[in-house]
Simulated scan of single mutants.
Amino acid sequence: MTRSLSYALLDVFTDRRFAGNPLAVVEGAHALGGDEMQAIAREFNLSETVFLLEPRDPVHTARVRIFTPATELPFAGHPTIGAAAYLAETRAGDLLSRHGVAVVLECKLGLLRCEALRGRSGVTYAELALPVVPATLAGAPDGAALADALSLAPEDIGFDGHAPTIRAAGPAFVYVPIASRAALDRARRAAPFSDVIGAAAGAFLYTRETVDPASAVHARMFANGLGIDEDPATGSAAAAFAAVALEFERPDDGEHELFIEQGYAMGRPSRITLRMTVERGALTRVAIGGQAVRVGEGRLFL
């Protein structure tokens, strides 16, 4: 007998369809094995597909597993934001229209606590408080190696004291400051890319020259070993960017809000909200948020 599951397609980190980062959300996935989930993610061929399962603790909303076309991830931002918005809309739509809705997701990184609310435009916004503070890892490539890996000149790497680093809030990323948006637009993966990036999930390139004056940085993310080349909006990388901002910008103690724009080079403009709390010069809380819109629904035959 043919089995079938329902799924929805969402665009995340945007308030309009056909922008942001596309996401497939598969319902009722508790009967699926990891190999089946990986095959389905490869079939959708999006940067990530999230599978909703029954939670281990019934007080939580759902358990999630997240797959790229090539591998499973312990955590990713855009599937979490998209799943939280979708669950709030489909399971608590009336409440969402009047108040915010709390969504608690179980994943391999730990418990993900999200708040969802519906704006006046009718688009749902979800925000995730990370269960961990971003970590700083050793072994960042030097600027010359990164320039070679990204088809850039050495002088294109770095600005105002920002230097390449490796940070992680789940998957690790190499953070590469780029001197100008023109250089960022020129960046391309070159043959040494994977060797230079090493075990990191990708290279997160950023510059201060933005399209929207309200944005703090304009970014691109070239993936490494995930089955995709470039990602339109990378929530886990945006979350760990809080550690980059702390080191190089030295914000005062208190709460700070940054907007990260990404995806423009792919024709998928995206906007990620990053909130960070600094106490005594250290990060104590990091949250990411964004809007999500449903694009379509269907059934998946197995």
Rank of each mutant, 00 (worst) to 15 (best):
F222G: 07
F222M: 14
F222W: 04
A223F: 04
A223I: 06
A223H: 02
L226E: 06
L226H: 05
L226W: 03
L226M: 12
L226S: 04
G227Y: 05
I228A: 00
I228M: 00
D229W: 07
D229E: 15
E230L: 03
E230P: 00
D231Y: 06
D231Q: 09
D231E: 11
P232W: 03
P232K: 02
A233D: 00
A233Q: 00
A233L: 02
T234D: 12
G235D: 05
G235Q: 05
G235I: 00
G235K: 05
A237L: 05
A237D: 04
A237Y: 04
A238R: 12
A238V: 13
A238M: 11
A238P: 11
A239W: 09
A240Q: 03
F241G: 06
F241C: 08
F241V: 12
A242G: 07
A242R: 03
A242N: 05
A243L: 15
V244M: 02
V244D: 01
A245T: 13
L246S: 04
L246C: 07
E247I: 12
E247G: 13
E247Q: 15
F248P: 01
E249T: 10
E249Q: 11
E249S: 14
R250H: 15
R250K: 15
P251H: 01
P251F: 00
D252I: 09
D253E: 13
G254N: 03
G254S: 06
G254T: 03
G254R: 08
E255V: 14
E255H: 13
H256A: 06
E257M: 12
E257L: 14
E257F: 10
F259D: 07
F259C: 07
F259V: 06
I260Y: 10
I260M: 09
E261F: 02
E261W: 06
E261G: 04
Q262F: 03
G263A: 01
G263L: 04
G263I: 08
Y264H: 15
Y264Q: 13
Y264W: 10
Y264M: 10
A265D: 14
A265G: 12
M266R: 02
